[in-house]
Design a protein around this nucleic acid. Structure first.
Length: 322
DNA sequence: CTGTCCCGCCATTCT
DNA sequence: AGAATGGCGGGACAG
């Protein structure tokens, strides 16, 4: 099924630039935490574009009307109170349509930034009507992107237990508490597991202790993710493995090559081509979603900052909106 | 020139 | 059967 034709997508380019820049705001939202959330009134003005279906109601397919890409996409009807804040790369972020158009760039359209915008548009926890339900079509409309991109974001967030699929087109937000629980599960030692350590790349044929331990823990606690087939190579699975690499290691710095070979070669029948998937999707999104300390660019060969940020969650200092 | 990663086609899975 | 989901290759873009 094709959700959007090429020419439609090209028409949407301006909207995409807006989308990316708006997402950047989340970087500093997390950095300043709830103080910021409470302090500044939202610039967002519209409040009607998202009308979640009642929980339990039928979810007819293609319910959403075709997106109109000629007008500026909606920004955060569900997250009023979240201020516009600066991009981690110091790009000034604004909801101004012209500015978005001018600042469009590859960097501004990243999956990581889309994830931030996704988080910024979460249903309000106080809204009993939504029940923290997230509708794929609605979110795609709000963010001004095609459904396909929503799945990218959702997959990674789901790997961290931040949300889960409850029905077709519908996901339920669980929040950082659920994620902390999942991280504990992924990172806690098992009775029979050996203490793990991490060094940089290991070229030997033997699986690194950390990697072997990670694989066994994954299969024990999340049996679905290590089965063969499509799921085996899913972004969700790769993301979860990537996170686990950090949780089970003593190092805070894992380079991409090491991560890729660890995740792929040591406990899965996947081929090395999956490395691309890891580099494409898993890391940037996780990086941004976990990034809570000092939003700034992260060198591609190092995830020290990502780990530093994720440590906040392990230390019980989540800086999420809720 | 190289590495990154956005985009969207289309295969697979689900309802 | 049609819709939902998401793997993956191509190529644009940044450095």
């Amino acid at each position: 099924m094709k959700f959007m034709k090429r020419h439609d997508w090209e028409n949407a380019s301006v909207s995409r630039s807006r989308r990316a820049l708006a997402m950047a705001q989340y970087a500093q939202i997390t950095s300043a935490g709830k103080q910021i959330l409470a302090a500044t009134p939202s610039r967002c003005s519209h409040a009607q574009s998202v009308q979640p279906r009642p929980v339990g109601a039928a979810t007819p397919s293609r319910e959403m009307p075709a997106r109109k890409m000629t007008s500026p996409p909606a920004v955060s009807p569900l997250r009023e109170g979240i201020p516009a804040v600066a991009h981690w790369s110091q790009v000034s972020v604004t909801d101004d349509f012209q500015t978005y158009s001018q600042q469009q760039s590859r960097k501004d359209k990243s999956l990581g930034l889309l994830s931030l915008r996704f988080l910024r548009n979460l249903p309000s926890p106080s809204d009993a009507a939504t029940g923290r339900q997230i509708y794929v079509d609605n979110m795609a409309s709000v963010l001004g992107v095609e459904r396909r991109r929503i799945y990218d974001v959702v997959n990674v967030l789901e790997s961290l237990a931040l949300l889960s699929r409850v029905a077709k087109n519908r996901y339920c937000w669980h929040g950082p508490e659920a994620m902390k629980q999942a991280l504990k599960q992924l990172g806690a030692p098992e009775e029979e597991s050996n203490p793990s350590s991490c060094s940089s790349s290991d070229s030997s044929e033997e699986p690194h202790p950390m990697h072997a331990e990670t694989g066994s823990r994954l299969s024990n606690r999340f049996p679905h993710i290590l089965r063969g087939g499509r799921k085996e190579k899913s972004l969700r699975t790769l993301s979860q493995r990537f996170v686990m690499l950090f949780l089970t290691s003593s190092t805070k710095d894992i380079d991409l090559d090491t991560a890729a070979s660890s995740i792929i070669n040591h406990y899965s029948p996947c081929g090395p081509e999956d490395e691309k998937a890891i580099q494409n999707h898993s890391t940037p999104t996780v990086r941004h979603c976990q990034h809570t300390q000092q939003p700034r660019p992260i060198a591609e060969d190092s995830y020290r900052q990502w780990w530093s940020a994720s440590a906040d969650f392990r230390m019980g200092r989540p800086e999420w909106p809720y």
